[in-house]
């Protein structure tokens, strides 16, 4: 669906069902240069099993209008405006990679909007190799190649796909090469508030990490999980692109946390 946020046309995937703000809502925030399609194999399950789903494309990404936001802090503030524009009072927020940093900032700036937070393939800070930023400055396509080579785990590099017949690396490249990867990577590299924010978070949290993650290694994720006091799952043999590489396992962990919280509410 399209909604207006700060006067800009914003796209949010709803998992194939009409959005209903009266249902428990799960928001999915994509990573650098990506879009709502990262969540294709999680959003539909929630939408068809008693939840409402919002998976926005951040401003300037894929189907959303506007200029890309320049910092994680701005992205967090934008997410708060987005949630309010959708008419939702509280959400379960799920973020992949940079998307989780955005969620952390949302938690810092508007904690009242959150029921839980989940980070996937992430940490409290995501340093970015300057060479990658430089590459992205010159060509999103070239930077996408580097990110996809490092980002997908060994199975995906050998052409394994959760969706029969498809090639996730090619799909990722097409999406990343058209999106403001440079701005996203700079925002990621500059964000240093993760540890401070972790101490203030009061809602349940979890991190889903990938053993073969070369962009946000398990070690960094584990250290942040301790700061966050989050439950942690490490999924073996997959890389950074967990929602795409290991969609079933990722969904299972999301279901376990979010369903248990909703049942208890």
């Amino acid at each position: 669906m399209y909604i207006e946020v700060r006067g800009q046309k914003t796209y949010a995937a709803t998992g194939g069902k009409e959005f209903d703000s009266s249902l428990p809502t799960v928001m999915f925030v994509h990573g650098s240069g990506l879009d709502h399609r990262s969540w294709a194999l999680q959003t539909r399950w929630f939408a068809y099993n008693g939840y409402s789903v919002l998976a926005p494309d951040l401003p300037g990404h894929s189907l959303s209008a506007g200029e890309p936001l320049e910092s994680i802090e701005e992205m967090g503030a934008w997410l708060a405006d987005f949630i309010r524009a959708a008419g939702v009072s509280r959400i379960h927020a799920v973020g992949h990679s940079q998307g989780f940093l955005d969620v952390l900032e949302l938690a810092r700036q508007a904690p009242e909007l959150l029921k839980s937070i989940t980070g996937i393939g992430t940490a409290g800070a995501i340093p970015v190799n300057p060479a990658l930023i430089e590459a992205a400055k010159n060509s999103a396509g070239n930077a996408a190649e580097m990110l996809l080579l490092w980002g997908f785990g060994p199975d995906a590099q050998y052409g394994i796909s959760a969706v029969p017949g498809m090639q996730p690396i090619a799909i990722g490249r097409q999406i990343m090469a058209r999106n403001p990867l440079y701005e996203d990577l700079v925002a990621c590299a500059n964000y240093e508030k993760g540890s401070v924010v972790a101490k203030s978070i009061e809602v349940p949290s979890q991190l889903i990490l990938a053993r073969k993650d070369r962009l946000t290694p398990v070690k960094a994720g584990m250290a942040f999980a301790e700061e966050l006091n989050a439950r942690v799952t490490i999924i073996e043999r997959y890389g950074h692109m967990l929602p795409i590489e290991a969609p079933r396992q990722t969904l299972q962990k999301l279901r376990e946390l979010i369903s248990s919280l909703e049942e208890a509410a």
Partner: peptide
């Protein structure tokens, strides 16, 4: 809601290997 196989008229694991291999050879998304 998830990827996988239902019926071999639509997808089949052996055929899927061939599909993914040809996509990789041609540089396609699927």
């Amino acid at each position: 809601e998830q990827g996988g196989h239902i019926y071999s008229r639509i997808t089949n694991p052996t055929v899927a290997v061939l599909e993914q291999r040809i996509a990789a050879l041609e540089g396609g998304s699927g």
